[in-house]
Write a protein that binds this DNA or RNA. Structure first.
Length: 421
DNA sequence: TCTGGGGTCCTAGGACCC
DNA sequence: TCTGGGGTCCTAGGACCC
């Protein structure tokens, strides 16, 4: 196997910069939903000590002092830029495995006649020119080594954005210099356990006894060890594996204390989850709802989940709303300040393959026609044009995005304007 | 005022069945 | 006055990822 990992640098920030060149060279951050935490940082923002995942309100002073530009998440923009990036990368390989919004594995099998470093530099230059996003390229004989090579490409200036760990000599040279915590799949807990055994660098991990790795960090640890030694255990998935579950959950912008607001939120979550189901031509056999109070602020604590099998598999918005509200009523307790809730669908199966009850077939056909009409109108006129009654218009609990950039590429009303002269 | 959202995989334990 | 072995399903929690 020969595989490359191409990864967008500071992806959300880079997307913002494409449409506002004044953001180049200055500290920029992007925040998550409700402008709660930092989810993407420019190098300048990293340099002044803004940590990943930190609550934005704690950093207000620091950010003001350094004139940091802060954006709310613009998911429509990032998803569209991601799609363009994947299209571009697809011209460099017959097989691409899209791993996340900003990362793809490219199959480099059979390209050994090429100078892979040069090929990586060409990929980097092309994505920059066509899409405007800076990327780094890591190449290796397994996914784990390609990930590690990508880390080197990003952090070690001598690689200049492209690193090939395909050769044993390059691995011997680089691996002793990298902390084991940088390996894909080794988190803080595993890092601490390995440190107790004197395993600190990637090289230390690579030469560890596989059985010991297994007892300390389970089968995933043993798999990582093999991958570091060039034995591929993770295949390239050119067809994305079927989803196991769909979740629609949000933190509320203010605490919810009355059931009518919880009901609205549940209806909205169920609606969104049903849309995701239908996008992927799936139906669900199991639904769960949960609600919880704030874990951090000392409010009286309550958290509960209720999950159950549905009488028949469905992707019908109205049926899922009905079930979600039914369950929400049962776990709702008066007197608490709820901060977060959600709807989760499990046991997904392709629409048409689900077991059906005797009287279900006729109902299912009718529901499918209604749902495709709903999706067609919302697709054409904008999501939320048609929505079920009871979902709420005011949405007091809803998500806040105070500093969002325009949907530059996906909304006609927000296209960038160019002026001459 | 205020701490993301959406996933996967692994392990362990309880309930229940034959 | 005992505590097997094999199986399934479910729940809960931990860990990790982007």
């Amino acid at each position: 196997m020969r595989v490359a990992l191409v990864d967008g640098n500071n992806f959300y920030v880079s997307c913002e910069r494409v449409f506002d060149p004044k953001l180049e060279g200055v500290p920029v951050v992007v925040m998550g939903n409700n402008d709660g935490i930092i989810v993407s940082r420019s190098n300048e923002a990293k340099a002044i000590g803004i940590p990943m995942g930190a609550p934005a309100f704690k950093l207000r002073d620091l950010m003001r002092r350094h004139n940091v530009r802060a954006f709310s998440s613009n998911y429509a923009l990032y998803a569209d830029m991601s799609r363009r990036m994947v299209e571009t990368l697809s011209t460099f390989t017959p097989e691409i495995d899209v791993y996340s919004i900003d990362e793809s594995f490219l199959n480099f099998e059979g390209l050994d006649h090429l100078d892979l470093n040069a090929y990586g530099r060409e990929i980097r230059a092309t994505v920059k020119q066509w899409i405007g996003i800076p990327v780094c390229v890591g190449i290796g004989p397994t996914k784990t080594l390609a990930k590690l090579a990508n880390h080197c490409a990003k952090k070690m200036p001598e690689f200049n954005g492209v690193c090939d760990l395909g050769g044993a000599d390059s691995r011997d040279r680089v691996l002793p210099a990298i902390p084991v915590s940088e390996v894909w799949g080794i988190g803080p807990a595993a890092t601490a356990k390995l440190a107790d055994l004197g395993v600190h660098t990637v090289h230390d991990l690579r030469v560890m006894a596989p059985r010991l790795a297994r007892t300390v960090i389970t089968v995933t640890g043993e798999r990582i060890l093999r991958e570091l030694n060039g034995v591929a255990c993770l295949a390239l998935e050119h067809v994305p594996p079927a989803r196991k579950g769909i979740a629609s959950t949000r933190s509320f912008s203010h605490p919810v204390t009355v059931f009518s607001e919880m009901r609205e939120a549940m209806a909205a979550y169920a609606t969104r989850a049903a849309e995701k189901l239908r996008e992927q031509k799936l139906v669900t056999q199991h639904l769960a709802v949960f609600m919880r109070t704030n874990k951090f602020n000392g409010d009286p604590s309550y958290a509960n989940t209720m999950g159950f099998h549905l009488p028949e598999a469905t992707a019908d918005t109205f049926a899922l709303i009905h079930h979600a509200i039914w369950a929400a009523k049962r776990i709702w307790r008066d007197g608490y300040r709820y901060s977060k809730a959600g709807v989760m669908l499990n046991g997904l199966v392709p629409a048409g393959f689900a077991p059906q009850t005797l009287f279900g077939a006729a109902r299912a056909g009718k529901s499918a026609r209604l749902m495709s009409a709903l999706d067609a109108i919302n697709g054409k006129m904008g999501s939320g044009t048609l929505r079920p009654a009871g979902m709420g218009i005011k949405r007091e609990w809803g998500v806040k995005f105070d500093g969002k950039s325009p949907a530059w590429t996906t909304n006609w009303d927000e296209l960038p304007a160019a002026r001459a002269g």
